[in-house]
Design a protein around this nucleic acid. Sequence first.
DNA 1: TCAGCTATTTATAATAT
DNA 2: TATATTATAAATAGCTG
Lengths: 97, 97
Amino acid sequence: MGRGKIVIRRIDNSTSRQVTFCKRRSGLLKKAKELAILCDAEIALVIFSSTGRLYDFASSSVKSIIDRYNRTKEEHHQVLNATSVKVCSFLMQHRLH
Amino acid sequence: MGRGKIVIRRIDNSTSRQVTFCKRRSGLLKKAKELAILCDAEIALVIFSSTGRLYDFASSSVKSIIDRYNRTKEEHHQVLNATSVKVCSFLMQHRLH
DNA sequence: TCAGCTATTTATAATAT
DNA sequence: TATATTATAAATAGCTG
């Protein structure tokens, strides 16, 4: 979306990298907000610039979304583990008989 | 960006909310990736759909970015606290004299 | 550097299949 | 209900003062 097409690779020139960062960061934050509102989604977005500055957005709070993220990931692990156990016992039974 | 202009408010119709969620989610994830690459930024994006499904992107890993986020926030608190202490002592001195 | 401008590209809302 | 199309809105790359 601009005067020219660009390829997605690190921008070498540090000035234009900074300008692009500023423009696209605000675009990304805006779109995150819009998605959260339009679709009733819970969204957390954390951005560190290459100079270490922090920018963030969260539809509720970053902390609560991170907590939910961790809980969800744990559940996934449990599901995966439960499946693994089943697969393992299946394999073992068929080896042993 | 579409056949018509829309206002940013929760989409009532659940079917079109789902369709919009799907389209905009993929757009948001794409733009997060682009920003990370173009500008050498560290980005974490966590999205929970209204039905509780999790989608995420992280330029490195969500966990490491969350850790960095927490560390950065702690530093901010320390800075704020240090400032508060100074302001308080200034105010107290000027009250006491 | 640094904030506008606009020609283009890109994203997507509505529609069609 | 899911996928593809297309007209249009929105984002933004490079420019300009």
